[in-house]
Design a protein around this nucleic acid. Structure first.
Lengths: 333, 333
DNA sequence: CTGTTAGCGCATTCAA
DNA sequence: TTGAATGCGCTAACAG
């Protein structure tokens, strides 16, 4: 369908091999170089990458697999990753699996089909066996897979909620509700642990009615906040553990007529923009998105370029932004 | 480096042609079919799609090109498009061009390189000449390209802001500020026109200081809102014309100590979640994202399957959600 | 520095 | 039904 190297060769009076070399940066005799260039221009030639990939077994593309597309947290990180990859000549193919375990595997296979040279994955239900004998380098973001020692970049999730919880405790709170993602997600479980550890460290009883699990979405934040606030003994503070849960939780509180922090103190996660828009602004745990992205890019580039690059596991510090959504209360004890 | 059709053929005692036929759904003699299936299983054979694409000139994938990845408006639509495409056997490759005209063309070329069978594009600076002789079907979302009669799905943008503006006028507002995207973006210009037309239709002078243009991002919303509110004669109402501008605008108002709607009335765009989180909730113009996605999918599928499918241009109705962010005022003059 | 030759993995004639 | 042969467009030896 398109113009081929053969036609270029014919028109310029050299062999296809020579044209190919030209395309791959090999120096030609000045005269040949010029006639090849002319032919390319005249014919409007564009190399067929599919054929090239077939031949070289490389595609100069990195596959990116995330659970949801409409999740700013992951898309922002990806933007940063892309930013670092592009200057090195790599393109990216982004796929989402709608938090669906079936799709998760299918899309992984799809990316492999496209002969990606590397993979950046935010996994959900993926198991070690699904990835352990892939021939392409892989880096996990945000979450890791049990028993896998593949490279990963994430934040210290336990610390994130530990700090948030301690902050609340320091302000007199004892009944602290927390809304977590499903406990089979690594991140969710870590965040839950951070909370529990902080409570325990401060000799506070952990009421299981205060620890709720659901999906990482607005609806979950909404519903579980209602549940927390409708219980017999309400929390005096709530921690939302992801971007969408933060949104849903705030909407629910407002819909129920509660004011933050007068009726209930609040610490959000990730949702910097909502935090800034509210008055008082929300105290939030933020992740260093740009740093995450840069680390991911560095690791995957290293791995693609030096097969021997060892796995690296990077754990970054969460950022706690203290704003006006936490009120000091008298401890109930 | 994987298992090839050749090895399968060898192991099952038939020719590669026969294996290929099996893979493509051609009926084989029962005995052959079984041995081929066994061989495939034993060897763990997986057809190499790159080779297949090279041969067939098809990839069963649709390329999606959007300006920004961290823009929920586009990613939500894409989710819906994907949802409709998957059951038909099509996968998607998503690329963003970071609102960069250079990248916009590059990524388009990248997708073409991947031999996508169809294209869904939210264009920015793309010109008709860039796409007029592509051999793959294309559908535009949200924005169209001048002098191009390609298929497109969008909302009636002019009406969206016309209605919002009329609503404000009906509530006594005369000095109405509006923050628009860059005027070379189709959508931005339409929205600006809707505003102007409503003003003119109501015999209200259009003060050019009230009509500001910038990027479709939070920073723009923030800065231009400051500008509007710092002027000598402040607006009594502000219209933000996209998701991020809405966010930035609200943050700016709050940072300056203004309350909505007491100090200034406000109508946002797209940002349903922020709208729901605020108290009073924000009045907003919403787009029917799911409907947009479904229309896009339908059109691109038709075009990929019947080359003759005519171009279609779908214009959907915007939704105006009236909440508490608009206050009735006494008209100034 | 250039051309010849071979083949990546698959799908598709055309005969048989 | 099947198989032998051919080639999609390109790159990679190797020899010249």
């Amino acid at each position: 369908m398109g113009v081929t190297i053969k036609q270029v060769a014919a028109l310029s009076g050299v062999s296809t091999a020579t044209v190919s070399k030209y395309l791959n940066g090999v120096k030609l005799k000045e005269k040949n170089k010029i006639s090849v260039e002319n032919a390319i221009r005249e014919l409007g030639f564009k190399a067929n990458t599919i054929a090239r990939n077939l031949r070289t077994n490389k595609s100069m593309t990195v596959g990116i697999l995330i659970p949801e597309l409409d999740n700013i947290f992951s898309t922002k990180i990806i933007s940063y990753v892309e930013n670092e990859l592009t200057p090195h000549g790599y393109s990216t193919i982004i796929c989402d699996y709608r938090s669906n375990p079936e799709l998760e595997k299918q899309k992984l296979a799809f990316l492999l089909d496209k002969m990606v040279d590397g993979l950046v994955v935010m996994p959900d239900k993926l198991k070690n066996k699904d990835i352990k004998d892939l021939k392409v380098p892989i880096v996990f973001i945000d979450r890791i897979i049990n028993d896998s020692s593949e490279s990963a970049v994430l934040i210290d999730n336990k610390k994130a909620t530990y700090n948030a919880t301690e902050f609340l405790i320091g302000n007199g709170h004892r009944r602290i509700g927390i809304i977590c993602g499903n406990s089979d997600i690594y991140t969710a479980e870590e965040r839950r642990k951070g909370y529990t550890e902080a409570m325990v460290a401060n000799n506070i009883f952990v009421d299981e009615n205060m620890v709720l699990h659901g999906r990482y979405d607005v609806q979950t934040g909404y519903t579980l906040t209602q549940k927390l606030m409708q219980g017999q003994r309400r929390p005096t503070a709530i921690i939302a553990t992801n971007n969408d849960i933060t949104t849903g939780s705030i909407i629910a509180l407002h819909d129920m007529g509660y004011t933050v922090p007068n009726d209930v103190s609040f610490i959000g996660f990730d949702n910097e923009e909502l935090s800034r828009a509210m008055r008082p602004e929300l105290s939030v745990v933020l992740q260093p998105l740009e740093e995450i992205g840069k680390n991911v890019a560095k690791i995957i580039l290293d791995k693609m370029n030096y097969n021997s690059a060892p796995n690296s596991y990077v754990m970054l510090e969460p950022i706690f932004l203290s704003k006006g959504s936490v009120k000091r209360v008298v401890p109930e004890n």
